[in-house]
Structure formats: structure tokens, C-alpha cells
């Protein structure tokens, strides 16, 4: 189908984009890669009166490490670019590993990390990765800027903490401590499909191989990306032996709240959560050593 008519603006600065959004509020949508918004407009599920196209606003696509070693990714950085970026691959290899599962190469050539996160699809991989990495998001509006931790950003299916005048401007990922291993794994019916279950795992070991810190988060596991803090806490202090991982996987199964789909019942998704979490934890442990 074809989209309904709209007014199109392609401002050449972030400030101009924020001014347009402030003026039109909920009647306006930012257009990033268009890989979720345009399908919705073609179906006429979305009929925004105004589109504020961010593709010509400079300064939103940088990928760089800051003085504290945190990785800063501009909201308009395309997923395909992040996947290939040497700095991102070096500091946070889980980004490329998970992005490889986000849709298809052609979609990643247009789709942006900011658009993917702002869309807040609970089946989407990157929101879960953001929880596992302890990401913080920089939200900007004409009123100013604020930093929101990932766990306070995702409020429900397609719902975020973004106000009607706010833009997600930058994603900030703290550096991974030494002896940290990360892994993202998912089960999907076909390559590029949304996952039936996906798990991001991050573990940090001390010099004796004891886990000092763990984070686990799942996609397609509830109304938002779902962290599994009890499972992660249970791993801390352990050596991530098979019994420890099995115990954590059992907790992950309890912590998720899958909604089911035509492809997988909630019970099957819950089962998958345990299996995929165990595999991801084993892989993260091997990579941490």
C-alpha cells in the first residue's frame, strides 16, 4: 500500500529538528532509517502529519570512544556501519554479534541504532543488548538534555521514556572491564527473522576465575527487553561451573514473561530462555578467560 500524505521536513541541523518536533509534538515523527516507520506508513498503521527527517542533520552519526573509554554512538549511525566499525568491534564486540541477527544486510544499510531503540520493539535484539551493557541514552530537546539508563527507557511494547519533543541523540556504553566476556545468541525460524528468544550475556571474572559481575537480558521475552537480575546475582562469586550456569538458566526461565506468537507458545519461549541463556553464559565465560 501507499502512505497517507504528510508534510516532510529535512532540517540541516539537530537544533532545527528539535524545533520542528517541539512545534508539532505527537503529530510529528522523526524519520531515521525508515525501516520500521515506512512499513507502518505503507500499511497506514502510522499516519504522521509531519515527518522530521534526520538524514540531513549532521553530527548524529559519529561512533567514538570518549576520554573515560565509553563508546558513544550517535543515534543516526547505521547498523551496518556499527557492525563494521573497528572501534565498536574492539570495545564492544557484542554489538556486531547481535547486529548480525537484526534483519537483513539491506535493512541494516539504512536502519539506525537510534531508530531501532526508539522503536522499542520487545522482539528487537539491541534493546536487550543495551540492558546487558548498562547503556545510557542521551535524550535531547529544546528544553535541554538528559541521560536515561536503558532500564528506565523501555516502558512497554513500542513505548519509551521519550517525551513528545525529545530526540534520542546518543547511546553511551561504559567500557567493559578486563576479563569480561560477552555473547549474544538467539533462536529464530530463519536468518534475519525476529527471534523467538534471544539472550545477551556479560560476565566479568577476577584473576582466579570467579565471576565478579554478570548481566543477562533477553529479547522476545516480555513487553520490554527483559533483564534477569536474579540469575545474574546468583552467578556472582561463582566460577561459572555447569551447575552454576544451570541454576542461573532456571532463574532466567522464571524472570522472563514471554507473550507467545504464531511461531512459539509462551511455554516454548520460556524453555528456550533457559537453553539460550546457558549457551550464552558458557560462551561469555570462555571469552572472558
Amino acid at each position: 500500500m501507499k502512505p497517507a500524505p504528510f508534510e516532510w521536513h529535512a532540517p540541516d541541523s539537530v537544533e532545527a529538528a528539535l524545533a520542528l518536533k517541539a512545534a508539532h509534538g505527537d503529530d510529528a515523527r522523526f524519520l531515521a532509517g525508515g525501516q520500521s516507520l515506512v512499513p507502518a506508513m505503507n500499511f497506514r498503521i502510522a499516519q504522521p502529519a509531519v515527518l522530521v527527517d534526520l538524514n540531513r542533520a549532521p553530527g548524529l552519526g559519529t561512533i567514538a570512544q570518549d576520554a573515560e573509554g565509553a563508546l558513544r554512538i550517535g543515534a543516526m549511525a547505521r547498523n551496518a556501519r556499527i557492525e563494521r566499525d573497528a572501534t565498536a568491534r574492539g570495545s564492544h564486540p557484542i554489538l556486531a554479534e547481535a547486529l548480525h541477527e537484526v534483519a537483513h544486510p539491506q535493512i541494516r544499510n539504512r536502519g539506525t541504532l537510534g531508530g531501532n531503540l526508539a522503536h522499542a520493539d520487545p522482539a528487537s535484539e539491541m534493546p536487550a543488548v543495551m540492558l546487558a551493557l548498562g547503556a545510557r541514552f542521551l535524550l535531547r530537546s529544546l528544553r535541554g538534555a538528559r541521560e536515561v539508563p536503558a532500564e528506565e527507557f523501555f516502558l512497554g511494547p513500542l513505548a519509551t521514556a521519550l517525551g513528545p519533543d525529545e530526540m534520542l541523540a546518543e547511546i553511551r556504553l561504559p567500557p567493559l572491564p578486563p576479563r569480561t566476556g560477552t555473547a549474544f545468541l538467539e533462536v529464530a525460524r530463519r536468518r534475519g527473522d525476529y527471534a523467538m528468544m534471544g539472550v545477551a550475556a556479560v560476565v566479568t571474572l577476577d584473576a582466579d576465575g570467579r565471576c565478579t559481575h554478570a548481566r543477562i537480558a533477553c529479547c522476545s521475552a516480555g513487553p520490554t527487553p527483559m533483564a534477569a537480575p536474579l540469575a545474574a546475582a546468583a552467578l556472582e562469586g561463582s566460577r561459572l561451573e555447569e551447575a552454576d550456569i544451570a541454576g542461573a538458566a532456571a532463574l532466567v526461565r522464571q524472570e522472563v514473561d514471554p507473550m507467545g506468537s504464531v511461531h512459539a507458545s509462551p511455554a516454548y519461549q520460556r524453555h528456550l530462555a533457559g537453553v539460550v541463556a546457558a549457551r550464552a553464559l558458557r560462551l561469555a565465560k570462555a571469552r572472558a578467560a
Binding site: W8, G34, Q35, N55, R110
Partner: peptide, 11 residues
């Protein structure tokens, strides 16, 4: 390579 159905011509 990109989807031409997910871009507006003006872009």
C-alpha cells in the same frame, strides 16, 4: 543495497 520501497523519493 537498500529497499527502495522503504525510502521516499525525496530522500
Amino acid at each position: 543495497p537498500v529497499r527502495s520501497c522503504l525510502m521516499f523519493a525525496v530522500q
